[in-house]
Amino acid sequence: MTDAQRPTIDITLLDRQYTIACPEDKQQQLDRAAQYLDRAMQGIHSQRKGMDRERIAIMTALNIANELLEVLDERRTGEQQMTELTERLDRVLNKPSNG
């Protein structure tokens, strides 16, 4: 498929429009991600008016990466707790009764 035939989507980040190649079945997902990214970039931009786009993009990427790592850590902790609870429940249920 040539570049001219590839499906694209237009996104806006910090009031600048970009055309991104994207399969049609992923366009809604990409649009949602772009909106999230734009809101995050706008937030940093509003706090630091003089910061250039590249620095805003880097700061935003670091913030989003940190958010992702926090969620992954919470998920891992939740999975560990669930495993421990399941093991405790199995021990209690499989414990021979003394009566």
Rank of each mutant, 00 (worst) to 15 (best):
E79K: 15
R53G: 14
E67R: 11
M82Y: 02
Q27W: 04
M1V: 06
C22T: 00
L69E: 11
H45A: 12
G99I: 04
R76V: 05
I9C: 05
R16P: 00
R48K: 14
L13R: 07
L30K: 06
D31G: 12
A40D: 04
D3K: 09
R39E: 10
I56H: 00
R39G: 05
K26T: 06
S97F: 05
Q47F: 02
M51W: 01
L14S: 03
A65L: 06
T83W: 05
Q5H: 06
E87L: 06
D52V: 07
D31A: 15
D25K: 14
L93G: 03
H45M: 10
T8Y: 02
P96G: 08
S46C: 08
E70Q: 14
R55V: 00
N63A: 10
D31R: 13
L85M: 13
A34W: 01
Q42Y: 01
R88K: 10
N98I: 02
D38P: 00
I20T: 06
A65Y: 00
D52H: 07
P96W: 03
A61Y: 01
P96S: 12
K95L: 09
K95Q: 09
N98K: 13
L62D: 04
L37V: 10
E79A: 11
T12V: 11
L68G: 14
C22Y: 01
K49A: 15
K49W: 03
E54D: 14
R39F: 01
S97V: 09
Q80H: 06
A57S: 15
D73W: 00
L89G: 08
R55G: 06
I44W: 01
I58G: 08
E54N: 15
E87Y: 03
V71D: 14
I20P: 05
I9H: 03
K49R: 12
N94M: 04
L62H: 02
A65C: 11
A40E: 07
D31P: 02
I11E: 05
Q47M: 10
R32C: 08
G50Q: 12
Q29G: 10
G78K: 10
L89N: 09
A33I: 04
T86S: 11
T19D: 09
L93R: 01
I20M: 12
N98G: 08
I64D: 08
T83A: 13
Q47C: 05
R48M: 07
L13D: 04
E67N: 15
A57T: 12
N94T: 03
N98C: 03
L68I: 08
T2C: 09
Y36Q: 15
G78A: 09
D3C: 04
A65M: 08
A34C: 05
T77M: 11
Q17W: 02
K49I: 10
A34H: 01
V71K: 14
E84W: 03
D10L: 03
Q17A: 14
I64T: 11
T83D: 10
L30M: 09
Q5N: 13
Y18C: 09
Q29N: 15
Q81V: 03
A4V: 08
A57N: 04
Q47H: 07
L14F: 03
E54H: 13
L30N: 06
L93D: 04
M59H: 07
L93V: 06
T86Y: 05
L37S: 07
R91G: 00
L69M: 14
E24H: 05
Y36T: 13
S46K: 13
E74H: 15
A61P: 03
Q17M: 09
Q42E: 04
I9P: 01
Q80S: 07
A21W: 01
D25H: 11
Q17F: 02
